[in-house]
Amino acid sequence: MPLDQDTETDDATLLARYARGDASATRTLTLRLTPRVFGHAYRVLGDSAEAEDVAQDAMLRLWKIAPDWEADRAQVSTWLYRVTANLCTDRLRKRRGGPALDEIAEPADPAPGVETQMQSRARMDALTAALQSLPERQRQAVVLRHIEGLANPEIADILDVGVEAVESLTARGKRALKAALAPQKQALGISDDG
């Protein structure tokens, strides 16, 4: 079953219906937006439990603002990503540092049949750790652009910077990621042709 069955209705309309007490709008918004919020928070924070807290907090703020939502405000998703980005920033300020690349376990001697699964897990762990090594703004921009798939103008709105700054952040972020991941290329099953 697809998570969000009501793909026709836009977020703002659903939020207005939520504010009028429509229970189906609550379900649709939850199914549509929670994975995006959690995914963004997880990639930025690199910690599932913290990302879960952030996702719940961000969604709660959405529920609370619904009755006062103005149609001419920013897009709902843009507002929600901005809230999520700020919540992540708050958490990152509270803790300094993160898991270093060399803390990621090498995929050693996998048993036949689970090799692919382990390598996939190792690839994600390596990407998560490499993301954590980026400066926070670069990380937010790279996640929003390349994992969440947002357009640069929307990212600019979310991060409250210009579009050129977003382009610069994502370009530098990708370069840094490639440099961080290159030494593990063989171990992660990344071939030279991509």
């Binding site: 995914g39 990407l127 990621l177």
Partner: peptide, 18 residues
């Protein structure tokens, strides 16, 4: 030792559904 854009894009693709 260099990582290509395509290889990085593959990683991003895998990361899209946590």
């Amino acid at each position: 030792h260099e990582m290509t854009d395509a290889a990085l894009d593959d990683l991003f693709q895998d990361a899209r559904a946590p």
